[in-house]
Design a protein around this nucleic acid. Sequence first.
RNA 1: GGAGAGGUGGCAGAGUGGUUGAAUGCGGCGGUCUCGAAAACCGUUAUGCGGGUAUCCCCCGCAUCGAGGGUUCGAAUCCCUCCCUCUCCGCCA
Length: 424
Amino acid sequence: MLDARFVRQNAELVRQALQDRGSDWNLDGYLELDTTRRELLAELEAAQARRNTDSKAIGALMKEGRREEAETLKAEVHSVNEVIARTEGSLAEIDGVVQEMMLTIPNLPDASVPVGANEQDNVEVRRWGTPPDFDFEPKAHWDLGPGLGIVDFERGVKLAKSRFVVLGRDGARLNRALINFMLDTHGGRGYTEWSVPAMANTETLTGTGNLPKFEDDLFAAADGLYLIPTAEVQLTNLHRAEVLDASDLPLDYTAYTPCFREEAGAAGRDTRGMIRVHQFDKVELVKFAAPENSFDELEKMVADAENILQQLGLAYRVITLCTGDMGFAAAKTYDIEVWLPSYAGYKEISSCSNCTDFQARRAAIKYRSPKEFGGSRFVHTLNGSGLAVGRTLVAIMENYQQADGTVVVPEVLRPYMGGQEAIQ
RNA sequence: GGAGAGGUGGCAGAGUGGUUGAAUGCGGCGGUCUCGAAAACCGUUAUGCGGGUAUCCCCCGCAUCGAGGGUUCGAAUCCCUCCCUCUCCGCCA
């Protein structure tokens, strides 16, 4: 959500931002509604002011025993109340539309974000590591996994439906090792670990921007709850409707959760293997930062995610998403893409975003700094994968495969695998 | 699932129809005192929106005491509905 006053006073800037994003959000329609709304509001408030002063006068007259005069004034307030009721009705109607619109306008891209239409206009920032050079024909994970008996696609379908996967034996253990390794590593770098519900209510999902616009991406559960698409939702909303202390910022949080996604618009994409599934594990990073250093914190967050890949010895590259490819809530996003032999290229394994005050405004997350400023201000929220566990598992299988079909366990994971050096 | 209690400002906690946006305490901020600090004392301290002025220094207005609706000239205060929390009992990983 954007600040209504900002949109009003910087209409052309917002128009440009929407255009850069390729958004068809109706700015002119909004501005017109906004003007009408303020006119109605002025009318309403004038009538309410009248009622308030008259009511006080009535109270005073009653005390003095001047009943007749009080009754006359009461009759006048009656007519004022009619105006109030009528104006309130019109205003509520417009307010409903305005609020709906405000919940669907995307965040403004940061000035440092490259302008572009789609993923082809994303800009590579850096690369790390070298993709493995196999002296044999490397297998894709969808062949390797079932071959080793550690990934079972058929049974995932049997238990749930397509795009669900079962991990078995060393696959399950490696998955668990990755979760623990990631949590421990981030914990060692100052992130506080949380364990949060796998379901979230509508207020929570509205706070992060998943609702109302992206309901199709979510799995709905009973009682108005949804399965979470990412722990970002929960970690960010931990402080919903709270006022934080500036001296506590930045707050660095991490959590492991399963993530559930409908993948409604992804029919036909990544259909093979476990790259795009309805349920996957992820270790998430979330930060609450002061506005003046949120972009520095974004760089640190990316470095924290990169650190996992470096320790695992997986080649990757970092790209800056262009305006047309960024998510709804983000002002700036770095994607980290890991090398996957089966794709003969880099595939997204982490996405780190600074959402500036966009989510904070929706979720009412503020901070106070009495020495710096009066009152409270919106914090900046950041989130990033650190990392998507399922895709990391895939990357390890494919990059660490041997000619004999076995998979070497990266050294940093061995303590988490009882010292095991290979999966065979 | 059954029974009861309760939801008020950053926190704790008063307030049961009329200058109550809200006592008091704690915390925060500013000041006095001090070489400095602590203590003490004094002052100050909710949020959102609209308008004026202007750009965050003020002024005016409106709204907000869990949410929504109702009664009334007037609601934190009375009535209804919903949500949530707590306590006890039952059940249970």
